[in-house]
């Protein structure tokens, strides 16, 4: 198993600015010296509560926001174009789709940007992608507001898959959905990974979910990685007190 990407000594401080020339007067340390590596084909779980910095970590990984210090390394043999090979699914399916764009436009956008298929094949490819996520072509001309949370999340997945990525970062992808839909989606994610040979970074606060899907786990608290290890190790022999607390709350 080769390393496909790595976060090396990543720190992030959100600065508080004031004045005409935006002078920095203070800072909020969101991430402190994070080291994380992702192996090709693995499912890496990131467990943390709200405010732990997990979403910031995801955004830095995708270079959507800059790190204050440290390096985001991608294996040059595996990841050649960041915006194509690494994709993200966000937590809130109600905010991740442009309300003024039709489903067809939303899903075809990556195809157009990266010129994945020639123009005349775009329509067919979009239908293929919709089918892959369990939606039919009727969705084409509809708007996001006409779909449920679970369906919107599937549209987000179709959009991400359109870019033919190698790595999928999933930031609490099922947390805002109904229980039964969560279970269905989790099964779907597992199936998808096998079928398309993807690598996942799966972020969640739900330990039961992480246990089902992740091979290797990082536990993050207040911007620091407090523990890491294989899934078996973490669940059976947690070493850090925070990990033990999390497990206790979940079981109790």
């Amino acid at each position: 198993m080769e390393k496909i990407l790595e976060l090396r000594n990543i720190s992030k401080v959100f600065s508080i600015e004031r004045g005409l020339f935006k002078k920095e007067i203070g800072g909020l340390k969101a991430l402190d010296n994070i080291n994380l590596s992702l192996n090709e084909g693995a499912v890496c779980g990131l467990v943390g509560e709200s405010g732990s910095g997990k979403t910031t970590l995801a955004k830095i990984l995708l270079k959507l926001i800059p790190a204050t210090s440290g390096e985001v390394w991608f294996n040059p043999n595996k990841i050649t174009r960041l915006r194509k090979d690494v994709q993200i699914i966000f937590q809130n399916p109600y905010a991740s789709l442009n309300p003024k764009m039709r489903i067809f436009e939303i899903i075809s956008e990556p195809l157009v940007i990266h010129q994945i298929v020639p123009r005349h094949q775009i329509k067919d490819r979009v239908i293929q992608l919709l089918n892959r996520v369990g939606l039919d072509a009727m969705a084409f001309s509809r708007y996001p507001r006409q779909f449920s949370g679970g369906q919107r999340q599937r549209i987000c997945i179709a959009r991400a898959l359109a870019a033919e990525p190698k790595v999928l970062v999933l930031d609490e992808p099922i947390s805002s959905l109904d229980l039964t839909v969560q279970a269905e989606m989790l099964d779907f994610f597992i199936l998808l990974k096998e079928k398309l040979e993807l690598t996942y970074l799966f972020i969640s606060h739900n330990l039961a979910v992480i246990k089902r899907i992740a091979d290797y786990i990082y536990v993050i608290k207040e911007g620091k990685i407090v523990e890491e290890g294989t899934s078996w190790l973490i669940f059976d022999q947690p070493k850090h007190i925070y990990t033990q607390q999390l497990l206790a709350s979940a079981k109790n």
């Binding site: 099922i174 229980l179 039964t180 969560q182 279970a183 269905e184 989790l186 099964d187 739900n206 330990l207 039961a208 979910v209 246990k211 089902r212 669940f235 497990l247 979940a250 079981k251």
Partner: peptide
Amino acid sequence: QKLLWAYEKIGRL
């Protein structure tokens, strides 16, 4: 039963 199925999958450690 469906709720319980889901609970077994993701609600229980």
